[in-house]
């Protein structure tokens, strides 16, 4: 095992973890406002396909990223209409959104299967340019990777250091109380869904425009569900979400590391580690109140008639 292979693994972990962290941050915002979005998988697919399509048509990856972001926000508006305005069951609505995403993304992406696009440019980090090319090319990151940690801090600031975030968390704990103190749970939940959808869209854009640089059906491969698990693992906290995303992408890197060093362990069993770890963490917390989910997560706010 050489230094190069280890660095290569770290690099691939960073690339695969980025889309996951954006999506997890988005879902953190949803869930803090009291909405479980199980449709992330579908939202990601639509963002990834529309971003890819726009990049292929215009040749401009930045426009693609922007469209993917907007697509994510708009997709979540469907969920918002169902669960906020029409007061439908959140889990069922999320799953319906997932199926919608499976279908619509296939239509959007079909003409672009196998198309070559201008990927999001990878930037030279200052200081690394003196390294041999083989090494420095591993750490040429696009701007979405560079911005992902700041994005986590931004979400943290938004949720815990602004009045808007206070209102959002209040709605997630008790929508009635928040309403009584003069906030609109409807509006706040729509805003949370739109913002979260945009972050999800960023994650999906990174997947299709910067990381894999192609479009295939179902290319997200369960990342939407992984993000839901990571939100729980990180106790609904954006900064701990960084840790969660590292854990998952670390497991992927670890897998590659083991394979290259000749240790025979099934990658499929390693795949399960993040979920089992999440479950174990939940067991260790043991349902104590301070580790608990937002109190009205999944509940329907009936509003005032």
């Amino acid at each position: 095992m050489t230094l190069l292979s280890i660095l290569g693994m770290i690099s691939s972990a960073i690339f695969s973890g980025t889309s996951l962290l954006y999506t997890t941050l988005g879902e953190t915002i949803h869930q803090r406002s009291g909405i479980v979005n199980l449709g992330l998988e579908g939202v990601m697919l639509i963002s990834a396909s529309s971003g890819f399509a726009v990049t292929a048509i215009t040749g401009n990856p930045y426009l693609g990223v922007f469209i993917a972001m907007m697509a994510g926000g708009i997709m979540n508006m469907i969920l918002g209409f169902l669960v906020v305005t029409r007061r439908a069951n959140q889990l069922a609505s999320g799953l319906a959104l997932m199926f919608f995403g499976f279908g619509l993304s296939a239509i959007i992406g079909k003409p672009y299967v196998g198309t070559r696009i201008n990927a999001l440019p990878r930037l030279n980090l200052p200081g690394l340019s003196s390294l041999p090319r083989l090494y420095s090319s591993l750490f040429k990151f696009d701007f979405l990777i560079i911005l992902v940690i700041p994005a986590a801090f931004f979400v943290w600031w938004l949720l815990f250091r602004t009045r808007w975030g206070l209102g959002l968390r209040a709605v997630g704990e008790s929508a009635d109380t928040a309403f009584a103190s003069g906030r609109s749970p409807f509006l706040i939940r729509y805003q949370a869904l739109f913002l979260g959808g945009m972050l999800t869209g960023l994650g999906a854009a990174h997947l299709s425009i910067a990381y894999t640089i192609n479009w295939t059906e179902y290319m997200t491969g369960g990342r939407g569900f992984i993000a839901v698990a990571l939100v729980i693992f990180s106790k609904w906290h954006p900064l701990r979400a960084i840790l969660g995303a590292l854990l998952f992408s670390g497991a992927v890197a670890f897998q590659l590391l083991l394979q290259s060093s000749g240790v025979q362990i099934s990658p499929f069993l390693l795949d399960t580690i993040p979920y089992i770890l999440t479950l174990l963490v939940l067991i260790v917390w043991g349902g104590a109140r301070r580790h608990a989910a937002p109190a009205s997560l999944g509940r329907i706010y009936q509003g005032v008639e």
């Binding site: 889990l91 569900f225 698990a229 099934s266 399960t272 979920y275 479950l279 067991i283 349902g287």
Partner: peptide, 27 residues
């Protein structure tokens, strides 16, 4: 036992099971 909510636990286990199946089939 009052440890983990069943919605979350069943969702997490959904993500584990297909990998176990893949492990046995491929392996």
């Amino acid at each position: 036992l009052g440890l983990v909510n069943e919605t979350i636990a069943t969702l997490l286990l959904n993500l584990v099971a297909p990998s176990i199946v893949a492990y046995f089939v491929f392996g």
